[in-house]
Design a protein around this nucleic acid. Sequence first.
DNA 1: TTGAAAGCGCTAACAA
DNA 2: TTGTTAGCGCTTTCAA
Lengths: 319, 319
Amino acid sequence: MSEIARLTNVSQPTVSRVLNGNTKVAPEIRERVLACARAHDYQFNALAKGLQGSKTRLLGVLVTDISNGFFADLAKQIEVAARENGYSIILFNSDYNPKNEQEYLDVVRRYRVDGVLAVPIRETSPQWRDYVKKLDVPVVTITRRAHGLDSFYVDHAQAGAMVADHLIDRGYRRFLFIGKDYDGKYVGFRRQLTDRGFGDAATNRVLRSHDQLGQELRDWFFSDTARAAIFAGNDIYALQVLDILRELGISVPRQAGVIGFDDTFMGRFLNPRLSSVSQPTASMAREAVEWLLDRIEHPGPREAQNRPFPAELVIREST
Amino acid sequence: MSEIARLTNVSQPTVSRVLNGNTKVAPEIRERVLACARAHDYQFNALAKGLQGSKTRLLGVLVTDISNGFFADLAKQIEVAARENGYSIILFNSDYNPKNEQEYLDVVRRYRVDGVLAVPIRETSPQWRDYVKKLDVPVVTITRRAHGLDSFYVDHAQAGAMVADHLIDRGYRRFLFIGKDYDGKYVGFRRQLTDRGFGDAATNRVLRSHDQLGQELRDWFFSDTARAAIFAGNDIYALQVLDILRELGISVPRQAGVIGFDDTFMGRFLNPRLSSVSQPTASMAREAVEWLLDRIEHPGPREAQNRPFPAELVIREST
DNA sequence: TTGAAAGCGCTAACAA
DNA sequence: TTGTTAGCGCTTTCAA
C-alpha cells in the first residue's frame, strides 16, 4: 500500500480506503490508485489486516475423517459456501482422536480464525463443551448435536428408528449393528426394535468394525436361521459387509439385508445397490456456514441454535 | 506476551525469547515465564508472527476434487505430514475449474502461506507455469508433472501403457477409454495399443463421462463382437461403468473387462472387485511435503525436482 | 543475558 | 475528502 501511495502521490490510508471501497474517495484518485494496484497485481496482506480487528476471513473446519466420502463431500460444500462469502477454510482431520481435536483448537486460536465449524467427537462431553465455549470465536457443530452449542445435524436416533421400522417391515427378524454401541443411530435403532418386540439380546447384536469382522459376521449369521439384517454405521462398513456376505455365499437382500448410513455417492452403483440413510449435506453445510457468518458479523451473546434436519431413507436393492 | 511480561517482571522481548526457545535466557526467568504462559494458556498470534518474516507455518493445498476418494486420501496424508512438522494447511478445491485455481493462488498470496502443494489442472500450460513461478513462494506439484516445477507424480503415460499390456494379455481385443483424450494415461494407453497392433480407430474409442454414458457405452459395446475392455480414467468412472454393464446384462470380466485408476479404497470391495492402477499416495504426499518444507527452510534458486513414482497394477476380478 | 526501540502492513481515530 | 498518527502482537536489531 505504501508503494502504491508513493507511486500515485496519495497517502497510504487513502490507498486503503480505495481498495476497501467503503469510504468516499475522489473518483479521480480512486481510478489512479486502482489502476496502479492492478498494474502491480496488488494482493492485500491478510495477516496485517487480521492483526487489527478480528477479521481474518478464515474459517476453521474440523472433520473426523476426510477420507470418508461423506465428510469429504461435506468439507467441499462448506468450502464452496465459505468461498462464496469471501472466506477461506483451514482444514483439519481429527481421525476420531480427541488429542488431535484438542490440538486443532489450539491451532485455530493461533490463526485467529473468525469462526469454527466442527464435526465433534465428544459432543456429549461437558468438558469439551466448556472448553469450546471459552474460545472467543463462535463454534458451530455440524452433523452432530452438542447441547448448548449451535448445532446443525440430523437426528441420528430418529434415523436409527426409521431403519428399524424399515427392516422389520421388510421381514427381517434379527439384527446386527456395525459400529459403536453409544452411537445415536444405534440407540434409536435399538429402542425402536424393542418397542416393536425385537429387543432380545439374542436377536440384536453390535459389532465393531475391525480385522476380525468377517469371522464374527459369519458366526453371527450362522448362529440362527431367522432372517437377518445388518445395519452398518456408515456406507464404508456396509461396503465391507456386502463383500463379506458375497464371500460367504449369502445372498442379499434375500438371506440377509444390508443398509448403510450417509448415502455416499458410490451406494447407488454398488452391486447390489445399497439402501442407506441420506443426510441433506448441502443444505446442512450451507445453513451452518451462513449461521456462522451471521454470528461472526453480528457478535454478542445469543441463544444456541438447534437445527435438526430430516434424514431420508433411500431404499435400493440391498434390503 | 506483554501481559506475561508484566506478570513476570521481564520485558516483552524476553518473553518472546523464552517462548521461542532459541536464545539463551536465565533458567530462573525461563521457568517463571513458562509457568505463567501455561497458567494463562497462552497461544501465540500466528498473524503477528507471520507479519514479520515469511514464516506463517501455513501451507496452501489445492486439489481438483476433494470428494474423489483418491484426492481426499491425498489431502489427508498431506495434512498429517504437514502437521508433524508444525504446519497447518489451508485447503482449496478447484473442481477442475481454472478460474477457481487462479482465484486460489490469489488467496494463497493474501495469507502469505509459506508454500503451496497443488494438483494442477493446466500443468502443461506455459502461462500457468510462468504465473506460478512469479509467485514468491515455493510451489510443488503433486500427482501430475509440470515441467520446470518441482513435481511428485506417477507417470500417467507409462501407467496407461501397463494397462494396455495387461488388457491385451487378458485377451481383450477392442478398447474404450473413459476420460479426456489429452489425459496422459490415455496417451500412453493408446500409444502402447498402437505399438502392439491395436491402433485402429475402430477398436479404440474415447468417451467423456456424463449423463449419456449409459447409452453411448451400450452402442459401443454392441457395435462389434470382439472382446471388449474398458479403461476408466478413475475408479469413480469405473464404478459407474460396472453398474451400467450390470444393467445391460454384460458379464464382467468375461464379456467385458473393466479397469479403473487410483485404486481407491472401495475397489477391493466392489462386486466384481475392481482391477485398478495404484499410486503410492502416502509416499508421494510425504516426500512432496518434505521437499516443500526443505525449500521453505532453505530458500534460494534450485533446480526443479522431478520425482516420478512407480504405479502398480492391481489385478482383481474385473479384468 | 536482558531491555529499549523500531517496524512488519495494515485499519481506525482524529484533525485538517 | 484527505492526511497524520497511533497501534494490532510479535521479531529483530542494537545497546547496555
